[in-house]
Design a protein around this nucleic acid. Structure first.
Lengths: 336, 336
DNA sequence: CTTGGCACTCTGACTACACGAGTGCCAGAC
DNA sequence: GTCTGGCACTCGTGTAGTCAGAGTGCCAAG
């Protein structure tokens, strides 16, 4: 019974604090929320919650503020995931419809997500392990340097420069092209990589070089680890905590590796992962939370998307937005 | 004679203000710089400079601060463009060497430039109007939808999705491929665009659709207007003026169009253009300066690069860095 | 277990005030 | 005509003191 009320108090504190950015006191709390108890009772509960580590006071005789642990409890036990309104759903669908190739889809998602949540959005490019090799093209740049282009069924194109180490004449190029083409064209990328790997072993000289580079390109494509970022302007809303929160984030936004690490473990589709403050893998982001989820065609989580924001954020709304976008993007990928 | 000293005073004020970020007063000035006159004399000069609009006081009885007009004069008449030290030159060369395709070069330049200047760097992708079409590839995505891929001699690849409006069978695809290929392959992109335009006119149905889309793609490629941005973390150093300067910039960084407008008129190679505060084309950037120049192979200015920073910046150093990077990038493009 | 009362603490806003940096101007020196 | 020293004046900044308000903790009674 008391336990239940305590949770209600915690929830109310989180909601108020998120809304006002000010430590919330007992009196204001009973007034704004319909708690049918006196401020004194709430104070006792708050003291207990503070003992258990869910709240802190910035200083004696100020209101309480949730700790990371408090947010954690709030997210785990007190959040009923909002569902998006019909209008919101239409807006999402409208925003994403008509995007054809994966790059376009990602670009639009990142924009959409940052607008919906008013946070910095991060979307990993989908890995497309099921795609097949449509075509391999070799273009001579100089006598000893080729451009190898892989066209994949997903609509993605991978290109690499190959240093041959020895000059090549036109006839050789045609031969090389058909040899490599035969090995790779039409196969799923893992099979193509195997075939090209074998080619790299058995051949020597230019053919081996080209095959080797193509294997690399396919590997990169499979574990495509690029990410798109959007909504950096939302960082302007952080207000204070500039040095503690905004600066590390700004630095990270240009480091693909760091961003990937942030999204990292959120690879389950249909589970929205929330990493709060110091729970995350990166030290400097202790004032930052990540809300992320996996997405991909066929409920097969192939990539992650999410947002990065201050620990003090509207978790229910944000989680709902992240989930909704992930679902729609997955559906669109499905259709292609 | 007095005129000369006045300019010396202006220069000293700009230098001090840039270094300290604090309004500079007459006494401190004569001490720090070797002006062989008394503070009172300097005060007279300062009053004159203020009358002419080169300086302002934040409030009565504070030091003076340069106005945009003051910076302008400083840049136009008082700046001897620093040359980079041998070590700096080596560093630049080392950083850029080994980049093969244009994307890589741009990525490295943007990074280099932001590190050298500690500002936000903006680099336009080089337009490659002289490149030729190496190959055209058509890939069926669905019965009514094609992916068209253009491989260009520059190493760049353009891809488009084409909606055909009617189903296509395999034989048609092969015919279409060779028809389009014959029209475009091997030509400089402007010729290829003309040939494909003719094709779009004379044919109907799928062939016209494909040709039309390819013409568009070539146009886009010719006036390739993408830009790369880097060093956003340097925005953190703006200190105050957060709302007036950082926020609009953050918003702009995701808008390609705005960035292009910023670089816009700086398309002369070997002339470093400086746009100070409200001189620029964008209203919200009145607290921001742009230092930019053109670059490209063969002294043929094909694209622009530069930095964006607060009006209060080290102009000589920044201009030198921008020029140096532009030169090295041009040279590397030359070699390819 | 809840509640009202009470004493206590701390912040934030406001005022007052002295200090220092800087200015403008004037009269005299070069 | 130009420079200089002196002097009165202006403001912004930092310090100290005061005060009201919000919030707490605890205790005793319901």
């Amino acid at each position: 019974m008391q336990e239940e009320r305590r949770l209600a108090v915690l929830r109310a504190i989180v909601e108020d604090y998120v809304a006002t950015e000010e430590p919330v006191g007992s009196k204001a709390l009973v007034e704004r929320h319909g708690l049918n108890v006196s401020p004194a009772t709430v104070r006792n509960d708050m003291a207990a919650l503070e003992d258990e580590g869910y709240l802190t006071q910035p200083h004696t005789s100020a209101g309480r503020v949730p700790t990371d642990k408090g947010y954690r409890l709030f997210v785990d036990r007190l959040t009923t995931l909002r569902t998006m309104s019909a209008a919101e759903k239409r807006a999402i669908a409208g925003f994403l419809d008509g995007a054809a190739d994966p790059d376009e889809i990602v670009a639009r998602s990142v924009r959409l997500l940052s607008q919906l949540t008013r946070q910095v959005a991060v979307v990993q490019y989908p890995t497309l392990s099921r795609s097949t090799v449509r075509h391999v093209e070799l273009v001579a740049l100089t006598a000893e340097r080729l451009l190898a282009v892989l066209i994949l069924s997903s609509g993605r194109v991978e290109q690499r420069v190959v240093e041959l180490g020895e000059p090549l004449v036109d006839d050789d190029l045609a031969a090389l092209r058909s040899k490599v083409g035969r090995a790779a064209t039409g196969s799923v990328i893992s099979d193509a990589a195997t075939a090209l790997g074998a080619l790299a072993e058995s051949e020597s000289g230019p053919a081996a070089a080209v095959a080797g580079v193509l294997v690399e390109a396919l590997e990169d494509h499979r574990s495509d680890s690029r990410v798109a970022v959007g909504g950096a302007a939302n960082l302007a809303r952080y207000g204070d905590h500039f040095d503690s929160a905004v600066r590390p984030l700004l630095e990270a936004l240009e480091e693909q590796v760091v961003l990937l690490k942030l999204l990292g473990e959120a690879s389950d589709a249909d589970t929205v992962t929330v990493r709060i403050g110091a729970e995350g893998p990166i030290e400097q982001f202790s004032a930052t939370s990540v809300v992320a989820t996996g997405y991909g065609p066929h409920d097969d989580a192939l990539a992650a998307l999410g947002i990065v924001g201050p620990t003090r954020m509207d978790y229910p709304g944000t989680m709902a937005a992240v989930r909704a976008v992930a679902r729609y993007v997955s559906r669109i990928l499905d259709e292609n």
